[in-house]
Design a protein around this nucleic acid. Structure first.
Length: 455
RNA sequence: GGUCCGGUGGCAGAAUGGUGAUGCAGCGGACUGCAAAUCCGCGUACGUGGGUUCGAUUCCCGCCCGGACCUCCA
């Protein structure tokens, strides 16, 4: 097995991965803020985490994957108010949709999925400790972290704290000692969610929750912390500052993993541009496996441009893979590990495009009847969450539902066409082919008879 | 303005200091009543100007272009 290496944002280099404890690898990922249904942009970080965990589980005996749910946030409060919906109802509903979406995408679930609201005590304990250690101060009902109290502030994101002030686009609150100081705890109005605290009834700032939950479930030092590049600053920088100041003997995250963003038709996805796609929008048009493959078709640190034509290519790729399994007459569960060359691709900083290229090479062999290659293909696909659909049903899967032609009618037309062909009535045979084609059914005449699939 | 990342064939997308992945699309052929699928074969690239080197798409510098982040967007 080749050495697993990954790109560490803090070191700004791709380096060999050395676990703090080879007997137990520990990973923390920033999870969703549950105020809306999941969209395809959310999925990229989720998929990167999924692939990372799948690979780590193959390399190490024990892996603990923690991913939080942020269920207290001003966006949530605002959305609940706009919807006329109870906050608890909103967060429960969107959490359930998030879980359902990830399950549809065949993503492995975290071992621990803590909720921010269940960890307020842990956050308060950290804040209290930061105040006592001189890293935080109380001002006008807020508790603020003092960035000047932490010498290496900015080291993770590669920023000079002095330069942050110049470009700041948000007005600096007057009670801050330094413009870079950020909120650990803030006062709540009676309508806002709040918890009693030594600093008055209030709610936590955004960053402290991840520090608190990571500490509670993974300790002062753990292996990998991940999320989207948009979180690098300020979120992760602040998490790191809080945690290292609170627990100076720990190292917090040993490796930082950041995935690039997703574009839609070359532009940032946004509601105002009309290119905003929720997960369920996409799953109405293609099987989840197709979207999963497309999200893996670019390296996780590269921008991924989501397009419908790109999705269609991923669909064709999966058709090819399933055909390869079919051609080799192999469809059982894999009883072997994926080929070494495939694992080596993944071990090279999760190089999924290369891993998929290797799958294509396996498929090419399998298509000529190489059953060994088909088994390799299946094992490789399953490892990254693909090719779980029974081969026979892949080509007949309904996506859009509703008024698709029932299978019995398809079979009846095929039988009629067979009769026509035997009678050399090719006009009628072609007419039936055309009729079915208009319904999105493609017929394939083979040596053993006619099969059909949905286009 | 600051920091960082990237510019590869028609498209998507990797690797790599010297034989130029992989897929889609395209072209030619085989197979087929016609198709589909499959098989065989073919073509096309390294933003730009310098530098280092026997040799650069790969390393270094400038320029152009694109993108991300710059206090609560995954």
């Amino acid at each position: 097995m080749s050495q697993f290496q990954l790109h560490d944002s803090q070191r700004r280099a791709t380096v060999p991965f050395e676990p703090l404890d080879p007997g137990h690898v520990r990973v923390y990922y920033c999870g969703p803020t549950v105020y809306d249904v999941p969209h395809i942009g959310n999925l990229r970080a989720m998929l990167t985490a999924d692939l990372l965990i799948r690979l780590l589980r193959r390399l190490y005996p024990r892996v603990t994957f923690v991913r939080n749910i942020t269920d207290v946030d001003d966006k949530i409060t605002a959305r609940a108010k706009a919807n006329g919906e109870d906050i608890g109802h909103l967060t429960e509903r969107t959490t359930a949709e998030f879980h359902a979406g990830l399950a549809a995408m065949n993503m492995i679930r975290p071992d621990i999925e803590p909720r921010a609201t269940h960890n307020i005590g842990e956050m308060q304990a950290m804040i209290d400790r930061l105040i006592r250690q001189g890293h935080a101060y109380v001002a006008e009902g807020h508790v603020l972290f003092s960035v000047t109290s932490f010498a290496s502030y900015g080291a993770l994101s590669g920023r000079d704290p002095d330069e942050l002030v110049a470009g700041a686009r948000v007005e600096v609150a007057p009670y801050k000692r330094d413009p870079g100081d950020f909120v650990l705890w803030k006062p709540s109005t009676p309508e806002q969610p709040g918890w009693v605290s030594p600093w008055g009834r209030g709610r936590p700032g955004w960053h402290i929750e991840c520090s608190a939950m990571a500490h509670r479930y993974l300790g002062e030092s753990f292996d990998i912390h991940g999320g989207g590049t948009d979180l690098l600053f300020p979120h992760h920088e602040n998490e790191r500052a809080q945690s290292l100041c609170c627990f100076p003997n720990g190292k917090f995250a040993n490796y930082w993993l950041h995935n690039a963003m997703l574009l839609v038709e070359g532009e940032k996805m946004s509601k105002s541009l009309g290119n905003f796609h929720t997960l369920s929008d996409v799953l109405k048009r293609v099987p989840a496996e197709v979207l999963r493959l497309q999200l893996m078709s670019a390296h996780y640190r590269s921008l991924l441009n989501f397009t419908w034509t790109g999705l269609n290519e991923s669909r064709k790729t999966l058709d090819r893979f399933y055909r390869a399994l079919q051609a080799a007459k192999f469809s059982g569960p894999p009883n072997r590990p994926p080929p070494a060359i495939f694992l080596e691709s993944l071990c090279d900083d999760l190089n999924t495009p290369q891993a998929i290229a290797e799958m294509h090479k396996m498929a090419t062999k399998a298509l000529t009847g190489d059953i060994e290659a088909a088994e390799d293909l299946m094992a490789a696909g399953n490892m990254i969450g693909l090719l779980h659909t029974p081969v026979q049903s892949w080509f007949k899967t309904l996506v859009s539902g509703s008024n698709d032609l029932p299978e019995v009618e398809i079979e009846a037309l095929i039988a009629e066409r067979l009769t026509a062909r035997k009678a050399k009535d090719f006009a009628r045979a072609d007419e039936i082919r055309k009729t079915l084609a208009e319904e999105g059914i493609i017929l394939e005449d083979g040596p053993t008879g006619t099969t059909w699939r949905r286009a």
